[in-house]
Design a protein around this nucleic acid. Structure first.
Lengths: 356, 356
DNA sequence: CTGTTAGCGCGTTCAT
DNA sequence: ATGAACGCGCTAACAG
């Protein structure tokens, strides 16, 4: 009181006035900060008179609690961090959408960090989240689970979705990449395709490796035909062009994800190669675009948004368990992709029929 | 001091050990927290011996600075907040991708809050960011600029991208929705279409309203034919079905965004109505999917990722200016969509030619 | 019912 | 070159 009220003495040279603090509110309402805190958080008891004075002061000063300070004091952030390798394509969009929905449903915030090139870059991102999040979901095809565990060493709840081998005892959601790839190839073979090529994902990416391995395994002795890609549409286009230049052209392609399959589809179209008549294509993920392509893309569906939702909910469970020193969720959930048959792999006869 | 070292007395029942703090590091290295701070931030001077001891301790304890605490003490967060209405479709994915790239390039973090139904919901999101971000980018087609200014009242740098009328003196990036709509309709008319319908965006959405107004204005006396949509693909499908059931069918449709145009395209396909021969379609945004559709979608292109990038960079400029009480960037940048002609609006003759 | 006070983890003068 | 002490804004005992 003796000192000029901080809140009123401002608005001068500074372009941005410092926001009112709890103390400003307390002074204006002639109460202590504790009372302000009680009123704002609805804890404890307060007389109606005090409550009203506080509320008025809050209104006048346009007071908004300082989230960071509150976190520091309660050591809770109500925020979960997500580490992604990239943000390209529809896969991650869908994933984040699912996560965001789940997070909001539980009143949590989401902070995502993406575009991580390699393992060290990812690790840096993980570290930068300390003190801002209560737990994190890590998707890192670069990072082995071993690196991650040593990094966290039980510091904070973590849910792994990095496609690598599940580490027992660490909560995770994994896509059955091997099984999915096998399913794709088997579908192709069952519809009469014989020379089945594979456009693989980026080298060094665990998911890419696993899908490639699945492809090879399902070939059942036939020679593998593998061309490199990096999960981008453009790389799928390039790879498909390579395929076309081969002396013995494949009659089917399994692309390690939908975006590459889309690129391949376009390349075939440009080259005048008909799909599915001349060459069949199957993708992986079932991103929204897959159903919109012409021919519509057969793919191994992973319910992306749903996985995001599950991930967030399990992580929230872990956070709460951690707070109460409860039993911990260490399950490794495995999601099996399911085949969605569309036109891009239709047998020659039915393809002709559907073409109209 | 008298109390047992916090760092060593842990690792017991708790599932998650409390992370090491700066004090733990200081004790282990037999120095003061001040020295630890100096070493870690590279400020001031430190003897090599001390520096090494600190570094070792950091390594041993796996110490990671607490971001929140640092923010509180420096009142900087190195984070910018983004308020979005929704996360559906490719528009926001692209936008976030552009923002994320720019943010990372400047060493800033991004925290996005989405799925806001109405004005009050958005306001709540805005408030919840205090103390976590140094500035924010607000996309809110619900919120009038007036509400926002009074909410912020010069508290923190804000960049508006909410499609409403630009408020002089407040930094903003606006899409020329009216001009874009006019361009779309004029293109349709110049290719010989006469009964041009409009699938509009959600009622109450400023961008939707402005585009609808532009559509009507460009009609130049002809009767407007407007059906409701909500920017979703499904709503575009429904709207298109409505259009088909009219006694006097339109021969062209301007959809307020690409996703609705895609829905319309599918509806036409299902109904056996040919595009562009029977009916032309033009969208808005030029999301990646637009070029992949068959027929490929003509649209008013907005360089989405680029806008995101610009927004982040201007906001960062504002944040730095605010810190130094410098002049403020108050420009209202207007982005004019440009027509991208594709097959969905090809004239009947060339359409036949391209069909092959 | 209300006010005082001690941290939360860190940056930062100011002495030493 | 280094350490002690204070403050950032808020919550949570503990007194009164």
């Amino acid at each position: 009181m003796a000192a000029p009220s901080a809140a009123s003495a401002r608005q001068e040279g500074q372009p941005f006035a410092k926001a009112a603090t709890m103390r400003d509110v307390a002074e204006r309402a002639n109460v202590s900060v504790a009372s302000v805190s009680r009123v704002l958080n609805g804890l404890g008891v307060t007389s109606d008179a005090t409550r009203q004075r506080v509320l008025d002061a809050v209104e006048d000063l346009r007071y908004v609690p300082h989230f960071g300070a509150r976190s520091l004091s309660t050591s809770k952030n109500d925020t979960i961090g997500v580490i992604l390798p990239d943000l390209f394509g529809e896969f991650f969009s869908e994933l984040i959408r699912g996560m965001d929905l789940a997070a909001r449903a539980h009143g949590k915030h989401l902070i995502v960090s993406s575009s991580h090139d390699g393992a060290e870059d990812t690790l840096a991102a993980v570290r930068s989240m300390r003190g801002r999040v209560d737990g994190m979901i890590v998707l890192s095809p670069h990072l082995g689970a071993a690196n991650l565990s040593s990094e966290f060493a039980g510091r904070m709840p973590v849910l792994l979705m990095n496609g690598g081998a599940a580490e027992p005892g660490r909560a995770s959601i994994m896509i059955d990449n091997h099984g999915g790839a096998v399913g794709a190839v088997q579908h192709l073979r069952s519809t009469g395709r014989r020379r089945i090529a594979h456009i693989r994902g980026a080298a060094g990416n665990i998911e890419a490796d696993t899908r490639a391995a699945g492809y090879t395994a399902a070939l059942d002795g036939h020679d593998p035909i593998i061309v490199e890609g990096d999960f981008s549409q453009a790389s799928g286009h390039r790879a498909a062009t390579q395929l076309l230049s081969m002396t013995e052209r494949p009659d089917a392609v399994f692309a390690a994800n939908d975006m590459m399959a889309v690129g391949a589809l376009l390349a075939f179209q440009e080259a005048g190669v008909r799909c599915p008549e001349d060459i069949a294509v199957v993708g992986f993920d079932d991103v929204p675009i897959a159903a919109l392509m012409r021919p519509a893309l057969t793919t191994m569906r992973v319910n992306i948004a749903e996985i995001g939702r599950r991930g967030v909910e399990r992580l929230i469970g872990l956070v709460q368990a951690g707070a109460t020193a409860d039993a911990t969720d260490t399950a490794c959930e495995i999601v099996r992709p399911i085949l969605v048959e569309r036109q891009s792999t239709a047998a020659a006869s039915s393809a002709r029929f559907n073409k109209g």
